[in-house]
Every structure is written in C-alpha cells, then in structure tokens.
Amino acid sequence: MKTHAIRFLVLLAIGLGVGLAHGLVGGLDMPRKPKTSVPGAAPAPVAHAEPAAMDPVAPETVEAAISEELKNLRAHVENGTAIVLDARTFDEYAEGHIPSAFHAPFEAFIGQVPDYMDMLLADPDQLIIVYCGGGDCHASESVGSQLMEYGIENVFVFEGGYPAWTEAGFAVETGGGSW
C-alpha cells in the first residue's frame, strides 16, 4: 500500500514538475480577453443607406426590444464599418451567418497562423467583431484573444452570437463564403 502511495506521488510530481516547467517557459499569464460591448457605429454614408435586405419588418415594439449591442452590430454590418468574424464550425457557418461575416474558427490558430492575418494586420486599428453560438459559447472569446495576441487591439465579442441575430429576425447569408 505504501509503495503504491509513493508511486502515486511520484507520477503526480512528474506531471506537476513538467507542467510547471512548461508554464514557466510558456508564461503563467491569463490570455487577454476582448471587450464584450460592441461600440456604436458612425452614421451610415448616403451611398450605403439602403439596407433593405438587412431590415426585416420590424415594428417599433420589436425594435425597442433589440439590445443596444445588436443595434450597433447591425449598424456596423450595414455600414461596412467593421470586420465581422464567425467563430463557429464551418457547417454552422455555411448553414447561416451574419451577412458579410467571415469564417474564422478558433482551430485555424492552433499551431499555425491563419491566412487572413495578413489582411487583418494591414489595418490593426480596424474594428473587429467576433461572434459564435451565443449563450456561454467561448469560441468568439478565444478567437478574440488570439487576435489580440497578434497585436490587433480593437476586438469586440458580440455575446448574443448568431442566435440573437436570428431571433431579432435579421437577414442571414448562407454558404461557404471566402476571405
């Protein structure tokens, strides 16, 4: 029994020791997290003032029930003032996504630099809004953190995610899309 307890502790110590060494090399800091309040958009330029497809039949009561975040996001989508990223899986993205959103899953950051980073880094001050499946989905937060690791600071997470967009009755796009 004593032998087993010692062996148990040895295995535990090996795991903790290697992990701690790894942590000291990798940095024992929490990743920075993107902000979660989508900022308001500037008034739409006249040339883009006809987003009929974006604006469903929305009585005033419904419009009032829509959160400020969602209104801001819609304004950015309509005005093209932000790059919107969809951090869900490709199948979910293809099934339906916020118009003009790009597919940017977290997996694209694992062990590699996503192809689109060059484009994003060309204008690091560009407003970027990331969303995923809403609720407690963390994919958008993870993608946002990764972008901030690359020096892109103006990153926001839309916490309501795709469900909030569709529940508000806003138009969606389907298909694969591309960068």
Partner: peptide, 24 residues
C-alpha cells in the same frame, strides 16, 4: 492549465504501458 495535461500524460502513459499500473 499547464500542469493538468502533464499529469494526464504521466498517468496515461504509465497506464498504457502497465507500469505502476495501480498507482497510475
């Protein structure tokens, strides 16, 4: 976050090889 995966690896490898099986 850094230590749990390595504890998993230490016990997982010992289990797979059957080394110190009961403790692992």
């Amino acid at each position: 976050a850094y230590t749990v995966p390595w504890v998993e690896i230490a016990s997982g490898l010992a289990l797979i090889y059957g080394f110190w099986s009961r403790s692992a």
